[in-house]
Design a protein around this nucleic acid. Structure first.
Lengths: 112, 112
DNA sequence: CAACTTTATATCAGATATGATATAAATACG
DNA sequence: CGTATTTATATCATATCTGATATAAAGTTG
């Protein structure tokens, strides 16, 4: 996938990525992210979204937090794609909702 | 997949997992890991191994480290499944070798 | 074998992610 | 409406992960 500043699709993607503090350094310009960094952020956002959908069907943020000895605010951040949340936590949360490696792998594949 | 202490497969898996400092707390007993924790470790080990295979075909640890502004020792740890390496770094390294989300997702699916 | 390249191990100061807590905002619902 | 539940935001001390450095060990090649 090529990064093209002017296309409508990339415009939307850029807005999604920049929404929650996803900036590199001080300047918030899409082109300051390498392609690899963009993919990494997209993976995080995809996991976030999938987590939110799964969790909402099953339990509250507080319940999930206690299942994985985390805190409700951290789950909120995870579901909102906050930049301070690691992939590790996202995957731990997915697993705590009962997600299998298959499902997690599919989410990542869906980024491509 | 069920965890069964006495089966030969789990014996082998346990040894793989415990090899590089993967212990919970002070006691190194397989059963102190929750099923979710086991899966998480397995995901890390699978990424480690895949990274090592990909990297070896393409470049040295030093080259990969410089590509992703990391260090050779950290790449060594990543490839050896050291417990101090985050999934985040493993995925960043995979991407730096040119891996796509498809390939990364497949590795995780392979854990199931 | 020796010189060279590559990988592994040890240490550490700084950066980043963490759970906890307080509380505000939003949502559900009687 | 008001009240209870759920989710979001802010702050913070601590734990974990990080790249850097030094150096040892292993592997390669002449």
């Amino acid at each position: 996938m090529r990064i093209n500043r002017s296309s409508a699709m990339d415009q939307a993607k850029r807005e999604r990525i920049e929404a929650k503090g996803w900036k590199v350094g001080t300047v918030s310009d899409f082109l300051e992210l390498t392609p690899e960094e963009v993919i990494l952020v997209e993976i995080k956002l995809a996991l976030s979204q999938s987590l939110k959908e799964r969790r909402q069907k099953l339990m509250t943020q507080t319940e999930l937090a206690s299942k994985m000895s985390s805190s409700q605010p951290r789950i909120a951040k995870a579901e909102n794609g906050d930049a301070s949340v690691s992939i590790e936590l996202l995957i731990r949360a997915m697993l705590a909702t009962g997600a299998t490696p298959q499902e997690i792998g599919q989410v990542i594949i869906g980024v491509g």
